[in-house]
Amino acid sequence: MKSVKKHTVELLQNHRSIRRFSNKKIPYDDIKNIILSAQAASSSSHGQSYSIINVTDVKKRKLLSEYAGNQEQVVSSSHFFVFCADLNRLEQLSNIEEVDLTESLDSTEMFIIATVDASLAAQNAAIAAEALGLGIVYTGGIRNHPEEVSALLNLPNRVYPIFGMCFGYYDKKQTPELKPRLPIDAVFFENEYKPFSETFPYIQEYDSIMEHYYRNRTSNARNDNWTKVMTNKRKVPRRMNMKSFLEKQGFPFK
């Protein structure tokens, strides 16, 4: 029998994004444990500056799917959560306590805190779901239309949607191939940041691995490597409305 430690490490290192789900619904007890696991994540000063919205309304799920770029799994998955950075709760509490937190809440630091808190909670939720035998996929596409998503979910001031996450059961025979990651020496340094000239050989090695991966996945129809994919994907700026949206939503970056 595998030790718990070994099982946990293998679970983490075998993560795959799942986009094809069955019609089977996740039972409430499992959903509750996923949320409790999310809540157990670290948070800055125990502030827990996030909220999670479980979208069950079919019409809203369909709209969110459209906003995310017609991602079908937003509708077909058993559950779809939207993870939000949330400073509204703290603002409301400060009003009750008659403490003026305006300057603090307006700061870029608090925006970062809320975003990191929500992201840590989301990753705990993802790991808990996979430990329960479920599949997940993050859905950053909801930021394509942040104002529409916020209106649809009735998000108040100082709350914004970071990403969604699909949860569900999947056919393990259709599990996608494990996608290789960068070599550890390209991302893990000791004492100081390594110059790019020292890490570039590892990236070249990785490009060869990814070129093989893309060819294998597409039966030789795709001739790409990681460097090409990343630079081509990022050469056209995306979601350039996010700064103005966040400012309207109560995150002025002061």
Rank of each mutant, 00 (worst) to 15 (best):
D106C: 04
N241I: 07
P252L: 07
Q92P: 09
Y170D: 14
I162M: 02
L132Q: 10
A125Y: 02
T8R: 10
Y206G: 06
R238Q: 10
K248T: 07
K172S: 13
L132E: 11
N157V: 05
K62H: 09
V187I: 15
F196H: 09
I112V: 15
I112L: 15
E91L: 14
F163Y: 05
M1F: 03
G168D: 07
I203W: 02
Y170F: 15
D29P: 08
N70I: 12
F245Q: 03
E147V: 01
L101C: 14
K172Y: 13
K24S: 12
V159F: 12
K62A: 11
E147F: 07
A38S: 14
P146Q: 01
M165H: 00
R16W: 03
R61S: 00
H145D: 01
S43L: 15
S65F: 05
M1H: 06
A114G: 04
A122Q: 12
Q39L: 07
P201I: 09
K2C: 14
K233I: 11
E103H: 12
A129N: 04
K194S: 06
M1S: 09
T227S: 10
L132A: 01
Y169K: 09
F189N: 08
N88W: 02
Q249L: 06
S42V: 12
S94E: 02
P161Y: 04
S208E: 14
L246M: 08
P201H: 02
V137N: 11
S45A: 09
F188V: 15
K235P: 10
K172I: 10
N223D: 15
I142S: 00
A118G: 04
Y206M: 07
Y169D: 15
Y213A: 08
M240V: 13
S3P: 01
F111L: 15
N33A: 02
K173L: 04
T199V: 14
T56E: 15
I96P: 09
N70W: 06
Y160F: 13
P161R: 01
S49P: 04
P161H: 02
K24F: 11
T115F: 11
V137T: 06
A114P: 10
N154D: 13
G250Y: 02
A125I: 03
L64V: 07
E109C: 04
K59Q: 11
